[in-house]
């Protein structure tokens, strides 16, 4: 229970259905010394909100201290990825490595049969294969299956997403009807541990070595200027480059080279690619032994595009889009869909 409306409603729905529900919230970073402005989600106020909701629906509630695990499993990966010139996706790491791992273990230790969250996604069991399927939430605007692609069969088997088959508005309506204290709380938007979207200073605080001066170069290798560290950039970025293009056309970040601290820039047309490879691929449907047709999604807010997906073995896969895609970004996830069903996904190389 994050203290937001979705997980609050998830808990309330299950309790109303007569399940034996225990509310658990994760404290993810030090709240003790005035760090309350640290981020928006799971701040101390949110933990108190979660407690108030649990009291309102008459379930026990506990806050688990996962500061150390969050730091080791999510934050340090986040920082390393930026230092390596990639653009991380911490919410997906948090789901697979913390919520449905350490937290789920704890819940089982307390006698729980399943772990429910407020994600907009659905889990179904395939009759024929017996496999657990992950599907998009019915509210396509809120769907979060993209962030859950790396859940294993074991993790999916005990996962419940009670709001996944509802539109967001009915979730809010339900919260209002039940008079949950968070019914009118705005949705959280930021990465929970980054205050005010300023991830750059967060990364340099955690990894001062990231703030190394480097150069902008164009596609031909010509140096166009200097920058203060590649962690400040992401593929597809246009704003904040501080570059005047010689020809007057807007310049975009095309790639980041950690080895020599170079930011490669060029015109928008150069951002387009049809092929990518991915690593640490998780197949939710069985791993295919020949190329399959799927819709591949390369960002949270990307419209999945038709592609051929081929397993390369060793947990790797190649995706060839029918049409070029803009800003394929290393570090983000690529998730393959068959209609609403997640076939699998991996981390973009």
């Amino acid at each position: 229970m994050s203290g937001g409306v979705d997980s609050s409603v998830a808990a309330a729905l299950l309790a109303e259905q007569g399940h034996d529900v225990i509310g658990l919230s994760m404290q993810l970073y030090d709240q003790s010394e005035g760090h309350t402005s640290f981020g928006s989600c799971c701040s101390i106020d949110d933990l108190h909100d979660a407690r108030r909701v649990a009291a309102a629906i008459h379930i026990p509630h506990y806050i688990l201290n996962f500061e150390k695990q969050f730091d080791q499993q999510v934050i340090s990966n986040f920082v390393q990825e930026y230092v390596a010139g990639r653009t991380p996706l911490p919410c997906a790491r948090c789901n697979s490595d913390l919520k449905f791992a350490t937290l789920a273990d704890r819940a089982r230790g307390l006698g729980a049969d399943a772990v429910a969250t407020g994600h907009y996604a659905r889990v179904e069991r395939a009759e024929a294969s017996g496999r657990y399927l992950l599907k998009r939430g019915v509210d396509s605007g809120k769907d979060q299956s993209y962030f859950l692609f790396s859940l294993t069969q074991e993790q999916l088997a005990s996962a419940l997403f009670p709001v996944g088959d509802r539109p967001k508005e009915t979730v809010r309506d339900y919260a209002r009807r039940r008079r949950l204290p968070v019914a009118n709380k705005p949705d959280s938007q930021e990465i929970c541990f980054i205050p005010g979207h300023d991830y750059r200073s967060f990364v340099t605080r955690r990894a001062p070595e990231a703030a190394r001066v480097g150069v902008f170069v164009d596609e031909h290798g010509d140096v166009l200027g200097t920058h203060e560290g590649i962690h400040r950039f992401t593929v597809g970025q246009r704003k904040g480059l501080g570059l005047a293009s010689p020809t007057g056309t807007p310049m975009y970040v095309l790639a980041l080279r950690a080895a020599d601290q170079q930011v490669i820039v060029g015109p928008k047309s150069s951002l387009e690619r049809t092929t990518l490879t991915a690593s640490d691929v998780n197949w939710i449907l069985a791993e295919p032994n020949q190329p399959l047709r799927a819709a591949a999604q390369i960002r949270h807010r990307h419209k999945a595009a038709p592609a051929a997906v081929r397993s390369l073995g060793d947990g790797r896969a190649e995706v060839v889009f029918d049409a070029p895609q803009t800003a394929i970004t290393p570090g983000q996830a690529v998730v393959f869909y068959d209609g609403d069903t997640v076939v699998g996904g991996g981390w973009i190389d």
Binding site: P60, L64, L110
Partner: peptide, 20 residues
Amino acid sequence: IALDLEGVAVSTGSACSSGT
């Protein structure tokens, strides 16, 4: 927590402001 769910109240360490 497991003890509390069984109706047994004990404690450990010092609780911080959020109760963890």
